[in-house]
Amino acid sequence: MKSAVILFPGTNRERDMIAALKKVTDAEPAIVWHAKTALPDGLDLIVLPGGFSYGDYLRAGAISARSPIMRDVVHRAEAGVPVLGVCNGFQALCEAGLLPGVLMRNASLKFVCREVRLEIVNAQTAFTHLYRPSQVIRCPVAHHDGNYFADEATLDRLEAESRVVFRYAQGSNPNGSQRDIAGIINEAGNVLGMMPHPEDLTDPLHGSTDGLALFQSIATTAQEKAA
């Protein structure tokens, strides 16, 4: 699987992400600096990892969404290349208009790092097909701005179209997100944004490998496509 990880100034979870990708593919992920204007050819996956791009000094993800590389990210997304945005990456995908809604400051107004119980609402996506429908997994969150918000009509539509992929299981919403939404996918099903960090639960030393099936799902989808 050929993947690219975008690096913005202030990105800080790229190492976690690369380590997780390496568990499911032998190919070294390409690290692409934000100031570049073109991604490598033939990608099976583009990842926007977590962090504090540009310090989150404007709205989280607002400046990185306007980085030079993002034009090509949008272009490839429209061409169907799978795109995964985690945490700050999710925020940037929303700011770039690839996903609807916005991530506001947590309802508690505090940063929160905590393991939550995460329900796989849609286990039929290219990113989640190795999970069981309605499976509840362990997954950590670590963010200050993870409070998902969209207008009622958008939320209704996301739910009607099975585009809410992850939900905080009952009682574990850490940030006040509307309808407990933790991750959503675009209409075409190739752009996924999520606040929790599956990459930090992929090794027995992490205490659990519940996050690994997400990366395995992506890798097997890529293999099937190649075959």
Partner: peptide, 24 residues
């Protein structure tokens, strides 16, 4: 400690709350 990101870098083996934390 929930206001601190104790997981970033993906090497945290023992989290806050024990006698000592461990990183790989």
């Amino acid at each position: 400690w929930e206001q601190y990101d104790y997981l970033v870098q993906g090497n945290t083996v023992q989290r806050p709350g024990g006698d000592a934390a461990i990183i790989r």
